[in-house]
Design a protein around this nucleic acid. Structure first.
Lengths: 346, 346
DNA sequence: CTGAAAGCGCTTACAG
DNA sequence: CTGAAAGCGCTTACAG
């Protein structure tokens, strides 16, 4: 159990070392103004007294807290966990502390978190805005005087820094890969949430499909279960010969659902996911997927915030990580273009 | 961009409302001592001035920060992300802020985080100790006067609260399930890290196997790749007829590796994972796995910390979540006990 | 290089 | 129910 003792203050340290409090403060902050022997004495006093720096008191006086907030919509999605890892890694090397909040895509919670973080005096926040967030969120943070960097999803790229990834280009690569394999009826399995990461992909899909081919957009919640259940409805009537999924979570569900129906993915049907999660390499067939590097996005967001804190003025900046299609076993030539009817096992 | 303005203080609010600072403070803290009309006036003043409570200043005076630290060894493991979700959910309802750190299993980092958090004056920390942590870690936190709750892995159950899950019993269920299917040579695919979550499983395995059967422990890093690569070595010579994996990550890798070798898992070989991650239901064959509920463990850890903060004295407490075997397609009768030689697909 | 003083924004007794 | 004062532990000028 932790024993609660009276706090050792800088004044205690100063007395013990026989110097003034100001001098002790300089030693704590590694100032070069203090002579080596004095410094040694103070350091020794800190050690023998068990002194712990009180960041809160310093922050009060100094006005900066060396603390940042991170707000994500869904911790359970490994994608965000990895992005968080990237953010955390950068701030760790800066000796800054990270305050975390999970909105579960709830905008009211998001507003509450932003305020709480402001009350705890974070220097700034990185936020992946909850679905449906609009400019009013940025007005809230403005009113609070809170510096914000948007990550992965953006509300406005004119009002605030943004670190993202090139979803549209990833989508283009996926569509072109399928077109080269002869596919013409390519579905986009989208989520049911409104945010830029959805709109960017959708736009990329529409542009890449082009006017000559048909556009097929189906919206389902982005879960394994919904992906799996989707297989039945997708294969009814005149089914597409290929599908691109919003993320690997829904793609992996759909893959299993198609297997349950006896569809031989990679031969009868082609499937592409997004995010290239580690499991994508393990599925049967292994999933073709668009790599988006969440760790790098997290790092980039953290650096944008650091930059902005160092230089609050200046135009909004953004960084866009590249995406890349990783081709595996789940995509293959369109059976129809080879003049075969789709085959089914069993 | 956030505009930095001079901070609005409680004194500004008090003046604007025509009351004293103390009265304004009482309103902020929702004290019943203030009359309704006065309260209204103060609230209105806060609103029109855009007042933001300064938690840091309050903490300095009051000595409690309404902030807790959470230290995990590996954010990328979905298991910890889910536990974190549970922790965060509880503290959110308590209006407390969560400070996050990721040790990457590095004990030196762990010590640094604990100190940093102490400097930021967290009320306590929840920590899943990095592999190899020993009592010296608890001595460090003791010296810092920091209240700690251990989660998932424990260093000592006598010195500090602990929230975990019943790994030994989960292991017992897994072994007995396999024994009932006729398996006698059952391997335990363990990780290469030293911590209680490993020792608990190992002990459960040894006890459940019993003296009549052979004990086969193989240690590999707990990654998809190492699991996949393990298939070759595991099936050489006189292979076991079944394996229980430390977690689903390595199990899913091994499953794919066995498929690559032509082993028909569920018939020729039986495989059990731990954690029952969502992907376990999706693999082919779907993976039999032991459910450990990380969200519930996270919630339990958070409640233990809340309890301890409210009542610092009292014996260390612990909560153990139950585990449960979920049987799917990856386990089946032992071929040898049916007098068949293991079959391999072409 | 060091010391004495003021102040960051709150809360806590203590009077009234 | 309200007001004046002190203090939480630090940092920041300002002298020396």
């Amino acid at each position: 159990m932790a024993t609660t003792r009276k706090r050792v203050t800088l004044l205690d340290v100063a007395r013990h070392a026989g110097v003034s409090r100001a001098t002790a403060s300089l030693v704590v902050r590694q100032s070069p103004l203090v002579g080596e022997t004095t410094r040694q004495r103070v350091v020794e006093a800190m050690r023998s007294l068990g002194y712990v720096y009180n960041a809160g008191a310093a922050r009060l006086r100094r006005g900066t807290s060396r603390t940042v907030g991170v707000i994500v919509p869904n911790l359970r999605n490994p994608f965000f966990a990895e992005m968080l890892d990237g953010i955390e890694t950068v701030f760790d090397t800066e000796d800054m502390a990270v305050m975390l909040a999970n909105t579960h895509e709830d905008r009211a919670k998001q507003d509450a978190f932003v305020r709480r973080m402001r009350e705890h005096d974070v220097d700034g926040v990185i936020v992946c805005p909850a679905a449906g967030s609009d400019e009013s969120f940025l007005e809230t943070t403005d009113t609070l005087g809170l510096t914000v960097v948007q990550a992965l999803r953006w509300i406005s790229q004119d009002r605030s820094d943004y670190a993202g990834t090139n979803y549209a280009d990833g989508m283009r690569q996926a569509v072109e890969h399928l077109k080269e394999l002869g596919h013409r009826r390519i579905a986009f399995v989208a989520g049911d949430r409104q945010h830029s990461a959805f709109r960017d992909r959708l736009e990329g899909y529409r542009n890449a499909i082009g006017p000559e081919a048909e556009t097929i957009v189906v919206k389902v919640p982005l879960t394994h279960e919904d992906g799996r259940a989707l297989a039945g409805t997708l294969m009814r009537q005149t089914p597409p010969s290929a599908a691109i999924c919003f993320n690997d979570v829904v793609a992996l569900g759909l893959l299993r659902g198609l297997f349950d129906l006896g569809v031989d993915v990679g031969r009868d049907f082609s499937l592409v996911g997004f995010d290239n999660v580690p499991e994508a390499a393990l599925s049967r067939p292994a999933l073709t997927s668009v790599t988006t590097n969440p760790f790098a996005i997290g790092e980039a967001a953290a650096r944008l915030l650091l930059r902005r804190l160092a230089d609050p003025e200046g135009a909004p900046k953004r960084t866009i990580e590249p995406t890349r299609l990783v081709i595996r076993e789940s995509t293959g030539p369109c059976p129809e273009s080879q003049a075969h009817a789709p085959k089914r096992r069993g």
